[in-house]
Amino acid sequence: MKIPKPLQFIIVVLVVYGLLKAPGLLLGKPIPQSVIFMYMLFVVIAVLLVMTATDESTEELFAPVRALVEDPSKRLIRNVVFIILPLTAGYIAYGFTKTGGGQAGLRSVHPAPPLEMRAYGKAFDLSTLVNPLRRLEKEDPAEFKRNVEEGGAVYFRNCFFCHGDKLDGIGHYAHALTPPPLPFKGRDTIAQLSESYLFWRIVKGGVGLPQEAGPAESSMPAWEEDLREDEVWKVITFLYDYTGNRPRPLGR
């Protein structure tokens, strides 16, 4: 049985939309609305292009629409559609004005770091900055372990309120914070980042974020005020150690 073109069009678009929505509904990992919007825009255009590539299929695709206005026998349906359409448009417009938009601010969570950062009276080049404790891992494992433990103490005296006991981003104040604190647990978090990136984020905090990442809303303190440089490195070492992650090597 051949499915008529207009129905094909609707089915294809709906199936793609369903596929894009599925990760969010089934796995709890939604594809962001902003991306879905862009994807759908181009999918609809692409499907339209395919279906209008030949005269026959164009004809078939728009036949019901054409019939609606031209075929006298469809007058009843036409009238119904012609009444429903303005009402729907009106309803949507009403919905928009009623809530006044109220669109939540968009925010990018993984901003590009600056080239250079100034803190502790020094300049740090983030593209070459490495954790000074990292070399101890091979050279002096016992000393490294001691540093990791000290980093743990720093973490549990300063960070765990928000980032959590389990380093999963669910501290006992996390539920009060928007945006939520970031987790360190899992292979897709700090394992994707170099230690210099963490150093930047910790030292400069939420207020040090670039504009696109919403510095006005992040509650991450700028730790250069309260932690020493070595404490920051220790806590970074701890974050990797506790979660079993490895930092991403430097380089572009």
């Binding site: 448009a89 009106g90 949507i92 009403y94 809530t99 939540a104 928007t178």
Partner: peptide, 26 residues
């Protein structure tokens, strides 16, 4: 942190635009 207060619009204004757009479509 920052929360938002949304002012529920006057219902009159809401209907106004709804009617305008519906008429436009029509």
């Amino acid at each position: 942190g920052w929360k938002t207060i949304t002012l529920e619009r006057k219902t009159k204004g809401g209907y106004f635009w709804a009617v305008v757009i519906a008429l436009f479509v029509f």
